[in-house]
């Protein structure tokens, strides 16, 4: 049997198709504002890569912020539960998950494979991928490189502001004062790590900790977070797909709960069509 998880994030869409035992294939694509509706195309791409037809998928779960109106999904589950499940599959001993996504950042508590608590950042870009993009743009370096650059710092700068707008100004001010880019970036990573730490501390950080989401690909941020937490954390082999993987795992679980006939009827009714979105208005329109 094949189970698919589709994670439509604010900046990246991910698909995982798995069998009972292993990940069969995965696809990761950026989904800018104009591409978000095209998740069905991405599903076609995944199917092609996996050498499968749409009809062969037994159950599909959509997650992520674009999960609500996916016509070809059997069910939707929040990305919070999906990250938890995906990480739990990789690391059954993990109790605390920190997910650093493109537009938000979450802390998740797990107990025996069950979601017990969570916390999300609130109206603030600090601690998200977006924040790092703004800063790297301001400093004229590539966002993929800022982590490595920051590791060369010997004397991290003191950055007092983590408001995206002010931090940008403050970073430029430090630069004009002659502080090196390494030190500024190290200071910024340290500041973000503190912010994320105090947010996740609200649900009580317990060992073992897993870091996931696109933000963890930044080694500087990862190091700063581990320093703040006080012990090393585990990171899945591909931190971008834990949500989609979790969705596929839920798909597998749900299939077990319904009878074969119903499953066949459902499969026939599914249409691989475009996704519609809620709230494309002002509250969500800041996708740059």
């Amino acid at each position: 049997m094949f189970f698919a998880g589709l994670d439509i994030g604010s900046t990246i869409t991910k698909i995982v198709i798995k069998t009972e035992d292993e990940i069969w294939t995965s696809v990761i694509r950026p989904t800018g504002a104009e591409h978000r509706r095209l998740a069905h195309k991405l599903m076609e791409e995944a199917l092609q890569k996996a050498n499968l037809t749409f009809g062969q998928l037994d159950y599909i779960i959509a997650t992520g912020y674009g999960r609500i109106n996916v016509p070809f999904a059997d069910r939707q589950v929040t990305e919070i539960s999906c990250h938890m499940r995906g990480i739990n599959w990789f690391f059954p001993g993990v109790k605390t998950i920190i997910d650093i996504g493109g537009q938000d950042c979450k802390g998740i508590k797990v107990n025996n494979g069950k979601l017990v608590n969570f916390v999300m950042n609130d109206k603030c870009a600090a601690g998200t991928g977006r924040f790092l993009e703004v800063i790297s743009e301001a400093l004229g370096v590539k966002v993929e490189e800022i982590g490595d650059i920051s590791l060369r710092s010997t004397n991290p700068a003191k950055i007092s502001s983590l408001c995206t707008v002010f931090a940008e100004q403050e970073a430029l001010l430090r630069l004009s004062e002659g502080v090196s880019i390494e030190d500024i970036l190290a200071g910024i990573h340290r500041g973000i790590a503190t912010r994320i730490y105090s947010m996740v501390e609200r649900i009580n950080i317990e060992k073992e900790v897993a870091l996931t989401g696109g933000g963890v690909k930044n080694v500087g941020l990862r190091k700063a977070l581990e320093e703040r937490i006080g012990f090393p954390a585990v990171v899945p082999p591909e931190p971008l797909i834990t949500g989609a993987l979790g969705a596929a795992l839920f798909a597998q679980e749900y299939v077990g709960r319904i009878d074969k006939k119903e499953l066949e009827t459902r499969k026939k009714e599914r249409r691989l069509e475009a996704v519609t979105f809620f709230g494309e208005g002002p509250t969500r329109g800041q996708n740059g």
Binding site: T78, E79, S81, L115, F118, M120, F278, G279, T283, R284
Partner: peptide, 17 residues
């Protein structure tokens, strides 16, 4: 009410937990 929809994920995740 314009800022409500983004809260849905939190309520759903809470229900799932």
């Amino acid at each position: 009410t314009a800022a409500l929809e983004p809260l849905r994920t939190r309520f759903q995740a809470f229900a799932e937990s």
